[in-house]
Design a binder for these strands. Structure first.
Lengths: 338, 338
DNA sequence: TTGATTGATTGAATCGATTCATTCAAACTC
DNA sequence: GAGTTTGAATGAATCGATTCAATCAATCAA
């Protein structure tokens, strides 16, 4: 019969007939304890149902074995995948990952950074929303380093792991041209989002290189509903003026376009082709599977966590680095050659 | 210039010229401190960049201001929505939510429960995977209560928040009959999953009441790919033997069916209608918007967290209760009356 | 004026695990 | 057999915030 709440280390020591130091060693450096005592201690732990108090442990030892991760939107599959990758690496290092959701809200973002500081996490993985770089630098001086995720560090003060959105945009447009598009369009916004800006720029440059014009449909956000609206707009254009292909700044938008086109009797890809961005699961699971630009999501999380541990573990000898992945186009039915 | 790592409470006290007790009071019971000293302390905190050490705090006070939440799959939007609801309630109570992912793996599930115990969370929200009820009861005796989420407690030893899957299944089938289906089918499995079993039973009972037969296509899992396979199978049946409507045990499966039907030239809903379950975002965002059974996901999380806090806060006076929500059918194009 | 009451402030004791200098015993060297 | 090395085990000191009984000052009642 395991005892009630709160057997502690001294209780274990007493029951096993050893000192507290020995019990602590069994917990933390088991190979430095003789087999005999070790098994006695383990038996006592089992009998008492002892669970080590993490607060006490980290108070004394100064380290917490946990990382904080702050993302823009936990509901976005992109971020859960990135988090999964980071969590795996954290687990390898015997750390746990505290996942928090800033929900694109500067106040919440600050509040969670407060929390991370109070918890004394060993490091932070963050996709910044508000103006937090200064604060992050301050946190580093206090011993809590951070790595930027899905965002290229503008200074060399941080490690960052991101994706080359310009290249992704170019790949999308090159693909559209290669299947014969002569009137491609870009749908997305706002351009204050770096990702949107980059994806557009890549596409625009590629269009210029290919000698085709690129129409622009700017949107105030990247949501599904917005895609539907723009889709209706495009569907109502005269066939001769209508784009023969669209590159949407993300998959949500692309799915919105797709639904609108289906409702308006526009055939995809025959009348109009579509490329999305992100390659979320539902891109391939749409009735008309969607061509999209795929980012190595788990890998982004893994690499970010690795860079973070590198900075945590190395005393001073750490050099910040910017990892930039090149996204890949995955061709599916929505851009089938006509 | 804020100071380096580790200003502590005594430093603040010294700088402000008060005792440590007063600083602690400013932090925890600000109204018991005179305005004068309070502002002096706050100034000192600001100047030193003091951040309270949560480990020390909770070691001494015994409470952690955090909940643990353990879900089957963080990548599943259902769970992220439930978590969001729970997180909001936790925030209202000034607690933070530690979200963990058992990934339908009994070993990980146990490991995370270990972690929660070590962290001394105040309570646990869990969708159990393995055989953990006994352990959870033991944890309660040690002062860590738990609430079952998306799972009806079989004993009255736990609070639980779940959805009436039988009613959901019945609603789906009633709807199909009401739009004129005479050869409905159920697609889903395995039947060892309580949810699948219940949804099927509700549908089967409703079919019997309506006097129509219910065909069954059993699947080994609930994934998209499986839906596509079954869809191909159905698409190859002679029109006369082919179901005129299918009820899929979840939306992933339904989307798979939809894609397959589209590829095989079956029109939805004219040739065959589809109802899904869960009403994930992508159900309504499909090219042919999908009728689905909607669960109040955030509400489930909120209610679960409220029940948990009730048990945490009440000394002994807590009575376990089972909350069961009735899901609602959301009719869309995939079951438009012919 | 005195005694009682209220409210603010103090600071030593405390939470529970870890650390590390020290002790002890055994094994080894010459 | 004396001296040295090695490995295990010990337990008091420690991490930093909170607690609470005690103190002090100010206000009030009679």
């Amino acid at each position: 019969m395991p005892s009630g709440p709160g057997a502690k280390l001294t209780d274990v020591a007493a029951l096993a007939g050893v000192s507290v130091g020995t019990v602590s060693n069994v917990l933390n450096r088991p190979d430095q304890v003789s087999i005999d005592k070790r098994s006695r201690v383990l038996a006592a732990i089992d009998q008492l149902g002892f669970v080590r108090n993490e607060s006490a442990r980290s108070l004394r030892s100064g380290s917490t074995r946990s990382l904080g991760m702050l993302v823009l939107d936990v509901r976005n599959p992109f971020f859960t995948d990135v988090a999964l990758g980071a969590e795996n690496v954290a687990e390898d290092h015997n750390h746990s990952l505290i996942l928090a959701n800033s929900a694109e809200n500067a106040g919440r973002e600050q509040a969670y950074l407060d929390l991370f500081e109070q918890q004394r996490v060993q490091g932070v993985l963050i996709t910044p929303f508000g103006n937090v770089l200064e604060r992050l630098e301050k946190m580093r001086t206090r011993g809590i380093p951070s790595v930027l995720v899905d965002r290229l560090a503008s200074t060399d003060q941080f490690c960052s792991v991101s994706v080359d959105d310009v290249a992704g945009g170019a790949a999308a447009l090159d693909h559209l041209v290669s299947i014969g598009s002569v009137r491609p369009a870009f749908v997305g916004g706002p351009f204050t989002l770096q990702q949107v800006e980059d994806r557009y720029r890549g596409a625009a440059d590629a269009a210029e290189r290919a000698g085709v014009p690129l129409q622009l449909f700017e949107t105030p956000d990247l949501k599904f509903e917005r895609g539907r609206q723009v889709g209706d707009l495009i569907g109502n254009l005269q066939p001769a003026k209508r784009p023969d292909a669209v590159f949407a700044a993300n998959d949500q938008l692309a799915l919105g376009l797709l639904q609108s086109f289906a409702a308006n009797g526009l055939r995809v890809p025959e009348d109009i082709a579509i490329v999305g961005f992100d390659d979320i699961d539902f891109a391939s699971q749409s009735s008309i599977p969607l061509t999209s630009i795929s980012q190595p999501r788990q890998l982004i999380g893994e690499r970010a966590a690795e860079l973070l541990f590198d900075e945590i573990d190395s005393e001073h000898g750490h050099v910040h680095s910017q990892v930039v992945f090149t996204p890949e186009l995955v061709a599916r039915q929505s851009t089938l050659r006509r």
